[in-house]
Amino acid sequence: MKRVIAALVLLSLVVIGCAVSLVVGQREFDYLIHLAETAEICYRNGDTDGALAAAETLASEYPERTRHFALFLPHQALTELEKSTASLPLILKYGEPLDFTAEARRCRLMLERLWDQEQPSWENIV
């Protein structure tokens, strides 16, 4: 009976862990995607300062906000995204205009894709 209780506790911990990771992940990824989107839209509307502010916030907050995601998300994808977010302010300051739009979009799509892969949807399960 003790072992069954231990098994139920273990399963409950896994379920709670999954639920917490989904809720926290959704919140953080929504925020990061919003920043990438803001940078992209601001730049397209000619608001370079707004784009730079969003890109810098994204670059500075990404490592902190995704710190715990390394527990369950592929490290390579997280590192790739970190490189992309870190490069956004630099491209805006020193790079070509088209490069920034492309990189901001790439960053947003990578964030969306990575989080989509974590959703417990039927497509992802099978």
């Binding site: 072992r3 069954v4 399963l11 896994v14 527990l71 490290h75």
Partner: peptide
């Protein structure tokens, strides 16, 4: 592979053992 999160290995082990115990009961 250090690129794979540790929990990706530990969570399935925990789930398998828990299911095995529940099934035995």
């Amino acid at each position: 592979d250090v690129g794979i999160p540790l929990l990706n290995g530990l969570v399935p082990i925990a789930v398998l053992v828990a299911l095995e115990l529940i099934l035995s009961a």
